[in-house]
């Protein structure tokens, strides 16, 4: 199910994050890339070079917006001025869907610029779902919420993270941006089985997938986006696409950014898993057909 209502029935393949060190290469060399994911906040400005670059990118490529400051889980109401700027950008990019994180990061209008974990409670799920609905209704574009990596859990939590994610997306009737690296990082930090998480996610709501690299410290993993994707994350990715279908996938590489080619080559590794999933699916279909055609 690569195309669903949460990614506006598009059939996007493998994308890359649009990052400043690659601007010159992309604009001059025009490399092949199915789509770029932009960080919305980098372009929610009133003018200047960021929008000039974006407009040139939009002439050549498909762009999907990914946000880092909507803070669906914050107790604060959505900020109208922020939404207005975001909507102007949505109109400019014509993003088929928009993603942001299932987290909070501001209170009373003070911002931490972090993706802080939610308390997994029903009250928080209801509040978060309501906010997602408000934002979607204002922006008039499908929304996918992304699971974050986390390093702490709250005493008040009443359910697992994947139960919370499911509760929120069902109540908001929105999609999921499934970050398999974040699942892996959180699984290691909180000692759960990442495959339990995958099994607990409503697969029909997954509109996009993220893969990324992380860093291992002695007592925890940190989601750093400054490495190639590690093997256990690719394995989890393979399982995710078996479960969800071949889905628009994006490699995040945000720090110690190497050349465009290196990032592109890393992202293209996803193709091997996508091919594997397609072969498995075709084999399953053939077996089904043979069973159906077999004489009784």
């Amino acid at each position: 199910m690569p195309a669903n209502r949460f990614n506006a029935f598009t059939d996007y393949g493998i994308g890359l994050g649009l990052r400043v060190p690659h601007y010159a290469h992309i604009l001059e060399q025009k490399p092949t890339c199915d789509w770029f994911e932009i960080i919305s906040e980098n372009f929610m400005v009133d003018g200047g070079r960021p929008l000039h670059v974006l407009d040139q990118i939009l002439e050549q490529y498909r762009v999907v917006q990914h946000g880092v400051s909507m803070y669906f889980g914050s107790a604060d109401q959505p900020d109208r001025a922020h939404l207005k700027k975001l909507k102007a950008l949505v109109r400019r990019t014509k993003t088929p869907w928009l993603s942001d994180h299932l987290c909070w990061g501001s209170v009373d209008g003070t911002f931490t610029h972090d993706l802080l974990p939610m308390p997994y409670t029903l009250a928080a799920a209801k509040r978060t779902a309501e906010k997602i609905r408000q934002v979607r209704d204002y922006l008039e574009v499908p929304i996918c919420v992304e699971n974050v990596s986390s390093y702490a859990e709250f005493h008040v939590s009443e359910m697992t993270e994947w139960e919370f994610l499911s509760e929120v997306v069902e109540r908001a009737d929105c999609g999921i941006l499934l970050d398999v690296n974040n699942i892996y990082v959180s699984a290691q930090n909180h000692s759960f089985d990442p495959y339990d998480y995958l099994r607990g996610v409503p697969a029909d709501r997954v509109g996009q997938i993220h893969v990324a690299g992380h860093t291992k410290f002695e007592q925890y993993l940190l989601d750093t986006h400054d490495h190639p994707v590690l093997d256990p994350v690719w394995k989890l990715y393979a399982q995710a696409i078996r479960q969800c279908g071949v889905t628009a996938t994006l490699l995040e590489w945000d720090d110690k950014i190497p050349s465009f080619e290196e990032v592109h080559d890393e992202a293209m590794k996803a193709n091997a898993f996508i091919a594997g999933a397609r072969t498995a699916k075709a084999a399953k279909r053939t077996a089904k057909t043979h069973t159906a055609l077999a004489p009784p």
């Binding site: 107790a75 909070w104 209170v107 009373d108 003070t110 802080l116 409670t121 709250f154 005493h155 008040v156």
Partner: peptide
């Protein structure tokens, strides 16, 4: 701009006010 945190973190999270109190505490 930041309002004072509660004296203690909420023990249960049932309302928006509880959520705000927890978020103020952590912030």
């Amino acid at each position: 701009g930041l309002k004072p945190p509660p004296k203690h973190a909420p023990r249960r999270l049932r309302t928006d006010a509880d959520l705000r109190a927890l978020q103020r505490m952590m912030t």
